[in-house]
Amino acid sequence: MAISSQDTAIRTGRITRTFIYLVLMLFALFYMLPLYVMVVNSLKPLSEITGGGMMALPQVWTIEPWLKAWSTAQVGVQATGLKPYFLNSILMVVPAVAISTMLGALNGYVLTKWRFKGDTLLFGFMLFACFIPFQIVLIPMAMVLGKLGISGTTAGLVLVHVVYGIGFTTLYFRNYYTVFPTELVRAAQIDGAGFFQIFWRILLPSSGPIAVVSVIWQFTNIWNDFIFGASFASGNGAPMTVALNNLVQSSTGVKEFNIHFAGAILAAFPTLLVYIVAGRYFVRGLMAGSVKG
């Protein structure tokens, strides 16, 4: 689903065009506004914000809010800053993304190149699992994680995110492999390659783009998750989003807005970076999740 530009047959007059550009610019400002607010206010002392200067550039530039948010801010009961939670998120995201993408690739391979009766129905069940409201699984999941002894741990969250991520990763790879020529698989079969050899030697080397899409989508989703983190990993094991929320919502003491904004940017930074570097693939992932691939 590429949305690259093409020649449009529609012609517009000069006044209309000026108007169009104006409107587009206004919307750009609207979308940029919260980011601007976050960045600008994370770089000024608290007094400048409370004095009604939220929109203004800092009079005194300071990176202190960033340092505080990172290492000394009060998150919940402890004054550890967001650093340990950032690490929690990394430790959760990396294995969860790797495992769910790998499984998705294998599932997509089986569902397109080794079709069997009822495979589409099975895929439908996997796909629907992506869209359930997670409230429906919170209670039994809490129990099972407790039984497995991984309640509140990063391992528990990895399991949760793999389970609820494979629907999407399978969708990506299935759609991608559907258009991968089946004749290649047949040729490899005749050449004597087995199930895994065909996957490793023939399909996987051509799966770069979709693997990127899958990794980015999973990374963004899992990093940004809040409900599972809040339900299963409060306290020291909490991921970044939960910690940020605790930081912002903490009712004790003065509200240090500049630190909140700095914290928010820290929480947004990894996914924003991915978006800037590989936005094209991110959009592809979004579209594949909504329109047919």
Partner: peptide
């Protein structure tokens, strides 16, 4: 094969 089915990689 009709499409030759050469392994692209």
């Amino acid at each position: 094969f009709q499409s030759y089915a050469l392994y692209p990689n």
